[in-house]
Amino acid sequence: MSAHSIAEPAVDIAAAKPVRRPWIWATGVVVVVLCAQIVQLLVTNPNFEWPVVAAHLLDPSILRGVYNTCILTVWGMLLGIVLGGVLALLKMSDSRLLRSIASGYIWVFRGTPELVQLIFWFNIGLVLPQIGLGIPFGPLLISAEANDVITPIVAAVIGLGFHEAAYQAEIYRAGFLSVPNGPLEAARSLGMNPVAVFFRVRLPLAARFIVPPMFNQVIGMTKGTSLVSVIGGSELLFSVQEIYNETFQTIPLLIVACIWYLVITSVLNVCQHFIERHYGRSSRPIAATRTAVPNAPAATRGDDDE
């Protein structure tokens, strides 16, 4: 007796019912109740001092701190991206010496706290009273006092940038290693030199894997600039601290800082969404893109339709 001769019971798909999951409803009720309690606390508790928050939200010193936070993020990320790219290339080179240098840098700067690095660069004058350029093992041609050059903002950019470079190097390296060898070998077979292969083939293909985590680091650095307040850098948190040290309105001023951090990171999240969507287009299924081409021919179904 063949397997096909056994009658199988008919299944009415229209009568199928979804599986009940009461624990999902219970969890949802608990979350809604907790959110309602938090909202009630925020609205009814006078200690939050919402009028004070509204009064200081657009304070000139606060806006100056927001501007400095954005500047620190931009310059720190630029330094981290450039130096991180160089470190990634060194770590992927054929020279054991260059790989060791890059690995040592990443080991030190990724393995020590960012706050410690900021304090170190701010106090670099204790180690090098003078900073300058000159002949190796010879006299200095240009020199200046370290305390005059390494201001809190300069120390912040150096500390944030050097720390970020260690992470960017690993992001670059992971993106470069994700590129398959096929396109690279095809470019070499066409006679392209290594520099052209890197900039015209490898880097564009790796961008889809590099840009999203890089943007996550941008958001992380924006919040990490709050550490600069420890060395006296005039960023957002430092501006807030200056005000509440005089008015003793700590909580409402911290709420002002949180609101501005949320505004900045929300803008960055929107930019990240569009960038990820741009670089993710190449990974979408072909069937999903056929809807944009109404006159595209239908796919052949094989010999069974003939």
Rank of each mutant, 00 (worst) to 15 (best):
L83H: 06
G76F: 02
L87P: 02
L58K: 04
D94N: 14
L83V: 12
V82C: 09
Q40A: 15
V82A: 14
P46M: 03
L41T: 12
L58S: 09
W75N: 06
V66N: 11
V74R: 07
G85K: 08
P51D: 11
W50Q: 04
V52N: 05
V82D: 07
I71E: 10
K91A: 09
L78E: 08
L72K: 03
L79A: 08
V74D: 00
I38D: 00
A88C: 01
G84C: 02
Y67P: 06
I38S: 07
G76T: 04
T73N: 12
K91G: 15
Y67R: 15
L90P: 04
L83F: 15
D59R: 09
G85P: 04
Y67H: 15
L58G: 08
F48Y: 14
S61V: 11
I38R: 04
I81P: 09
L78Q: 03
L63C: 12
N68Q: 15
T69G: 09
P51R: 13
L41Y: 05
D94L: 13
R64N: 14
D59K: 05
V74G: 03
L90K: 01
N47T: 10
G65R: 03
V66S: 08
L72Q: 08
G84A: 10
M77S: 11
A88H: 00
G85M: 12
A55D: 13
F48L: 13
I81H: 07
M92N: 15
E49K: 15
V43D: 08
L58Y: 12
V66A: 12
V52Q: 08
G85V: 00
